[in-house]
Amino acid sequence: MQAIQVTRIEHLPWSSGCRFVAWRYGAGHSQLQLYAAEKKLALLFQGVEFMSVHRSYPDLAIALSSDVDQRASAAPLVVELMAAHKSGLVECSKVTVMKLAAAPDGWWPDSAQVLFSLGGT
């Protein structure tokens, strides 16, 4: 499967169809990783300036937030996390969705296959 560089809001929202859990956060690298064991998918947020997240999201969907002026944020992207009765927000420079062979053992596991990415290079 070829990676897709998402460049327009029309490509979002993206719906996962599975449960994601907060997997790892690194303040030094400003990165947040969410993981879905059911489908072995990982979401990697890079250049995180602000986040308000729950520990888990059943049937997670992501979209660019329509409630926040993207230009007023310190980060280029304001990504909304949506699930039944839960929501969250991540201000970041980039978000990447990856398919993995196993649970992530690092920020960018060797088995990572990028499904799509939104934001900086």
Rank of each mutant, 00 (worst) to 15 (best):
H11Q: 12
E80M: 09
R71E: 15
V48T: 07
W14E: 01
I9K: 13
K39R: 15
E10P: 04
G26L: 05
R71G: 01
V97I: 06
S16D: 03
A37Y: 10
E91Q: 11
A37F: 09
H54R: 13
Q113W: 00
M82E: 03
V79C: 05
A101W: 01
Q46W: 00
M51E: 10
V21I: 15
L60W: 06
Q2Y: 03
I9Y: 02
G47K: 08
T7R: 13
R8D: 15
K86W: 08
L81S: 02
D67N: 11
M1F: 11
W107P: 06
R8I: 12
A74G: 08
K99H: 09
R55I: 08
A103D: 12
S16L: 07
A42K: 08
C92E: 04
D110W: 03
A103T: 13
D59C: 07
V21H: 13
A36R: 08
A83P: 02
H54I: 01
K40Q: 15
Q31F: 07
H29N: 12
Q113K: 08
A22K: 14
I4Q: 12
H11K: 10
P13H: 07
T96P: 04
M51R: 14
T96C: 04
F20M: 12
E91A: 07
A63Y: 02
V95P: 05
K39A: 15
S87P: 00
S30I: 00
S73A: 14
Y25F: 13
Q5A: 13
L44T: 09
H54V: 05
M98H: 04
S66W: 00
R8V: 14
G119Q: 05
E10T: 12
L34A: 11
V79W: 03
M98E: 05
S87H: 04
A75P: 02
P13K: 06
S111Y: 06
Q113G: 09
L100F: 04
V78K: 01
